[in-house]
Amino acid sequence: DSETFQNRTRTNFEHLERLRNRSTYVARSCKEIRDRYGDEEDGLYYLTTANGMVYQTFCDMTTAGGGWTLVASVHENSVYGKCTVGDRWSSQQGNNADLPDGDGNWSNRNMFGTPEGATSDDFKNPGYYDIAAEDMSVWHVPNNFPLEHWSLAAILRYHTNNRFLSLYGGNLFQLFKHYPVRYNIGSCSNRGPAIPIVYDHGDRESTRMFYGPRSRNEFEPGFITFRAINNERAAMAICSGVKPTGCHTEHYCIGGGGYFDPRQCGDFPSFDWDRLGHDQGWS
């Protein structure tokens, strides 16, 4: 009858509208997609930058009200490779004090990887520098898991809720302009901000246990910290889940500049100091 027909037409029209909105690239973040179009499904969406560059990324539309845009992943292809191929978040050019910024990817507009490959290789999209955000969310997902299982497979998930990014320019690109990830930029006491986190999977204790026994004595879980500097003046980008209280941050902070004295250079700099997976020393 005509009512059914009208309902069906309306539903169909709404569906087409949604598709059109997705394919005319009118949103700059997953939050905008959720707020403007009411899309509540996790998955890949098209976004656009201020300059009109179109890209696809994963939206988490579930966690704490949803609207989270995946902008980057840090993946360790080999913890034994020290600032070699694949260490895009530190340096792929060798451990070199003459390249204090390393590859410089924490503070440039370079991009690499694909959203579907984000657990198999490093990933960075234009959202990293284009989106004006308030908060961050971090997922630690076992390597090579496919996108549809990321959330369930994650060993740790948390987010911030105090809008700290607004204070630092709205994204990490701007934050790291205030706090360069550069060798010899300062000393251990020149650490960047440590922001309290809300756990979505895991807790303070499980966070503690992911790191080595000696590391556990020099951080406080329940935070995300930016631009840590160690005793040897190497800079690291993010201490995920913890706030350092000591200066051996190379054992539990990720990403970095281009030089670590003497040998720890890498995206996961010295997570293997006392070998891997033995629950001893710094490992």
Partner: peptide, 15 residues
């Protein structure tokens, strides 16, 4: 650090 940690990718999101 634990093997679990080093063999997991760190995914960063904004909102």
């Amino acid at each position: 650090a634990s093997k679990e940690m080093t063999e997991a990718a760190v995914l960063l999101f904004y909102r």
